[in-house]
Write a protein that binds this DNA or RNA. Structure first.
Lengths: 224, 224
DNA sequence: CGGGATATTTAGCCTTGCCTAACTTTTTCT
DNA sequence: AGAAAAAGTTAGGCAAGGCTAAATATCCCG
């Protein structure tokens, strides 16, 4: 695909706006050059260059020195890319027997190669799933993302109350395998037993077993 | 993928060596710059440039003004690319419900995006097929291509002898739909009723129906 | 408020793969 | 054979997307 880079940048802007706790799009928080540089593994100068191009094509609005935000057109491209990514992931797991830790890497490439026709067929064959193997919602072909009920990071859940894992926002195969090893899979029941004062490890109980959980992981685990 | 162009060139050299009736590889017929230019839809100058690069990397041997042939390394890359292409095509038809005329285009892109792991899983899920939707053999993962029994072009088959369609070497969706409309599908029985003297249309009978067949199509239909 | 630290942009360069135009080699045809 | 045609190569450019180094904005803190 010729616009692999373009899609990757827009997706990164989208996710960073989202991470900032804002609606990705013209109204959300702007995203800094350095954040994009880090996320994409590319020099800041390269980011600036690409942002100018994206701004010229009206996919982002760029105020020099103050970051970018997606335009409506940019948001559409980003969401379509995320849709392809998540459907491909789900397909790799459900139809081809991959494990959840292997699929992000593969999908990162396939999301740029798979046509709308192919991805829509995959989605049909899978029975029109609403989420991917990590519990992330699959946007509709019209670009709508169903809001996630009331899932919250494990770090913000009350102590001694049973909750269920609904989503795991983590892309590292190693870390996903580690979490899976603890029994932290989608749908797993768990109880938060002890929350460290500031940013220390959490103590959780999953399937009768107790584990200490690094807060960085815990933040990526959404429960309800 | 970074080496999309490289794979496309090597695949084209492979197919052109093969078309010349020779074993693709160091021993086969050399392929001309202009043949590659036409097949790849790229200027002759561009072909020359790329051939120099491929020669530098030892994927082809290039005698200036006299064409190129694949080295053993080049053959391996070409065959692996063809394997991915054909497995993807078969998968699109068998697992995703595409029709045989739609899949070449899609596979042309996916062949560069799909990892060995993914393509091998597809092949397993399909039940280890030996050929693709057009009857073309799927190379093994070691790069071996089973020789096709004694399939011959329809143009070289004796008159009034029933034969069976084993392969259709044609990539144009329009033409494939046209052939399908005549009943010329894999496995179809047909009889060649009349062969024009030099290069005129053939008269064939398929499933009780008689059709005139342009010799260019007829050459692409292999039978046994 | 001023200045150093940090973030961002600009300038200049590289590689890929493509292009056209001009030149050279090979082929073909009389 | 010898010239015209065809095929192939070289030269010079362009757009994409990267990079580093240098210049400039912004931020933050004493």
């Amino acid at each position: 695909m010729p616009d692999t880079a373009l899609q990757d940048y827009l997706k990164a802007v989208y996710k960073l706006q989202e991470t900032a706790g804002s609606e990705p799009g013209p109204a959300g928080e702007p995203v800094s050059t350095s954040a994009l540089s880090e996320r994409l593994g590319v020099s800041q100068a390269s980011v600036t260059g690409m942002l100018k191009k994206l701004a010229r094509k009206d996919f982002v609005s760029h105020e020099p020195y103050r970051g970018v935000r997606l335009t409506e057109a940019g948001r559409r491209v980003a969401v379509a890319t995320i849709r392809r990514h998540r459907i491909v992931e789900q397909f790799l797991v459900e139809a081809l027997g991959f494990t959840w830790d292997e699929v992000d890497e593969e999908a990162e490439i396939l999301e740029h190669a798979v046509s709308e026709k192919v991805v829509n067929r995959m989605w049909e064959v899978l029975g029109r799933p609403r989420s991917d193997p990590h519990g992330s919602p699959i946007p509709s072909s019209e670009g709508v993302i169903e809001p996630e009920s009331d899932a919250r990071p494990l770090t913000e859940t009350p102590v001694e109350t049973p909750v269920r894992v609904t989503r795991i926002r983590n892309r590292s195969p190693d870390e996903l395998r580690y979490l899976g090893g603890l029994g932290l899979e989608l749908g797993a029941e768990l109880v938060l037993e002890e929350k460290a004062p500031f940013d220390g490890p959490l103590l959780i109980r999953v399937g009768g077993r107790r584990h200490a959980l690094d807060p960085r992981f815990a933040h990526a685990v959404l429960v309800e």
